[in-house]
Write a protein that binds this DNA or RNA. Structure first.
Lengths: 230, 230
DNA sequence: GCATACATTAAAGTATGCATTGATCTGAGG
DNA sequence: CCTCAGATCAATGCATACTTTAATGTATGC
């Protein structure tokens, strides 16, 4: 199993360490390094076509982001999420995204500023009509990312992004189990209204409720289906 | 190549990398590596009596925690906080600690569970009476850390801890400029009451307000005194 | 006199080899 | 048959040597 590179060797100015971070993250998010699996530094290095050093550095970074754990002598272990982990992460996501919604509302956004959110909402609508869950998930993610980004707090963006990475596999797993997210669409509409009118308290509250629903659904699904490594 | 261990060789089971993380963090927090200063990997390595490898690994970790930035060819630069950074960080701290307060209230804590918070509050009281600001700061930090820890969400603890590290120097700087924190003491009492009675909404709100006050004070002080690198 | 291209060099980035360490296996004793 | 001590060995931790790269200084041409 050699260079699973695909696209040839374009070094593109990225350092090997950065490449390792990105590729490993990608491999994890796409489940090609499945949750719970163990991998030696040297294996990963061979797989990525580099020496152990940049791989080591990458694993340290990814460990701080919660995607894996470095366990001396047992290889790096890809993180798996228990229902408890899920709950912890969603609590933080709920909180920080609600804050983001509040901040956006407080900033008195123009219609132009809100355009990406509108667009994402329209896409979600279309996706639901077409019962295209993948498309819905993509639009939903765009909506949330854009919302957080509009809040203008880089720290929030960084944390939310890292945590979303951690739960992305679980989302993918549950995407076809859960009901079509029509309610979610209504929530987004309500949030948009609150943002437009600059109603910060409502924005926060709507989004908070929205997120808490998602959180309960995810945790319940995981518990119910007995997923222990997601 | 010998162990150029300045302070005696107590390896204590820690890896060099971990030692580097801890020592560098300590050097930064105590301002011996001042905000804004630049340092070559090799200098730091020499200073810590180890090779560049563990130092590199440590800087990568500390970078993800926001304590420094690795700038190729220009050395690692110790982070300095602008008022904007301060605001971003405090927004997150406010949000997550308030959530923590809510969670603790929801858990219906026993008096025994709350004992550490009580103790910290008493210490703060004594410190204020004695006008001992250092002691007050220490007790205050204990209170906040314990509160977050009681919430039982490891992710919150990790984020709050990392962010507190980032603002600790600024806190130290302003400790003697700001008014004696008597109001802060009242806030803590109110929070304790809410926790005892299990009033989650009140707990969240009291702490949120408490934190927002602190945030404004810090940001104002920094702006007013024109600190640009803290 | 200024700008630009080239040389120089020092620091980061990477690979590799060696030392350390802890997991696992084996064998002896209970 | 089970437990535990010690040996074995492989993976990591760390250092070091080498490569690449970009900043700086110099010289040349305009």
């Amino acid at each position: 199993m050699g260079q699973t590179e695909g696209s040839g060797t374009r070094s593109k100015g990225l350092s090997q360490t950065q490449r390792a971070v990105h590729e490993l993250r990608h491999l994890i998010l796409t489940n090609r390094l499945p949750a719970g699996s163990n991998h030696l530094e040297s294996e990963l290095a061979a797989q990525l076509g580099m020496s152990r050093t940049p791989v080591r550095e990458a694993t340290l970074v990814l460990e701080t982001q919660g995607l894996l754990k470095v366990r001396p002598r047992r290889g790096v272990q890809i993180s798996s999420l228990s229902a408890k982990d899920m709950e912890e992460i969603y609590q933080v996501l709920t909180e920080l995204e609600s804050l983001a919604a509040e901040l956006v509302a407080l900033s008195g956004p123009s219609d132009e500023t809100l355009a990406p959110l509108e667009a994402a909402t329209l896409d979600m609508e279309a996706a639901i009509a077409a019962e295209d869950r993948e498309a819905w998930a993509a639009a939903d993610e765009r909506f949330h990312r854009e919302l957080v980004s509009l809040a203008g707090n880089g720290r929030i963006s960084a944390i939310v992004s890292a945590f979303n990475d951690q739960v992305s596999r679980a989302r993918a797993l549950t995407l076809y189990i859960r009901p079509l997210p029509e309610e979610s669409l209504r929530d987004h509409r309500a949030l948009l209204d609150a943002l437009r009118t600059g109603d910060a308290a409502a924005a926060r509250d709507v989004h908070r409720t929205h997120r808490i629903k998602a959180q309960h659904m995810m945790v319940d699904l995981l518990r119910r289906h007995g997923f222990h490594s997601v």
